[in-house]
Simulated scan of single mutants.
Amino acid sequence: MEHLWDISPPVHAQSPVFPGDTQYAQQWSARIGPGCPVNVSSITTTPHVGAHADAPLHYDPHGEPIGAVDLGAYLGPCRVIHAIGRGPLVRWDDLAHATDGLPARVLVRTYERMPVDRWDPELAAFDAATIERLADAGVRLVGIDTASIDPAASKDLPSHQAVRRRGLRVLENLVLDDVPEGDYELIALPLKWMTADASPVRAVLRRP
């Protein structure tokens, strides 16, 4: 039987979000009962909740919303590289042991255990020079197991801006705790939200 690694954290009312962002909330507008055959709910949330894909619009005022981006980057061969405890910035040397013949998608594990139940203000992020080196190597998508590819307190977002310049796509908040280093197929398609700056994804890996 084919094995899938589900690398998406659970999403619920206690899911951590960037301080000041919109928490996940769900309200029931209909419940199964006399005269009602279905449950129906509405959801309020930031699109950056859980595992998510940033749109260019998130870091570029003229960038594409997530519903307009090409899906090719979010589906295909990828490599998981461990850089556990290498923060606050993941540098090229932290990845160099696994960079021969890189596929177009690279996911980086920085946590021993990803904190799915709390916000981490000390999250590890990418050094912008690492993004540039990955782009030079032909990488089209970068992912990380923290809430941002830039430090939580950053105001100039150098790694997001490197992604913007180089045309890369971004996945954040992945759970890579139980994923060995190596090559996989990534499936992490964003929703077709035509005006949104991001989209939650159900990210999974499988062996090619």
Score class of each variant (00 low, 15 high):
R140A: 15
Y24S: 14
M194P: 01
D6F: 05
R31N: 00
T146W: 01
L107F: 11
G35W: 02
D178G: 06
F18W: 13
R133D: 05
Q27C: 10
S29Q: 05
I66W: 12
A104F: 02
W28D: 07
G87V: 04
T146L: 03
D150L: 09
I144R: 03
P34W: 01
G63V: 13
T22G: 00
H3C: 13
I149W: 04
M194K: 15
D100C: 06
T130N: 02
D178I: 02
D100Y: 07
T46Y: 06
L176Y: 02
L141G: 06
D136G: 07
A152E: 13
T110S: 14
Q26Y: 03
G138P: 07
R86L: 04
A129W: 03
P115V: 03
V40M: 10
R113I: 07
G50W: 11
E132K: 08
I81Q: 08
G101W: 09
A13K: 13
T44G: 00
T99I: 11
L102W: 09
H48C: 07
V142R: 10
D94N: 15
R86S: 14
L174T: 06
V163P: 14
G35C: 03
S199G: 12
E2M: 13
R91W: 02
D197A: 13
G63N: 11
E132W: 04
V116C: 02
M194Y: 11
I149C: 13
G35S: 09
A196G: 04
E132M: 08
T110F: 01
D178L: 04
T44P: 02
A25C: 09
D150G: 10
D54G: 09
L75D: 13
T146P: 00
V17W: 03
H62Q: 14
A104Y: 03
V201W: 14
R166P: 04
W119K: 08
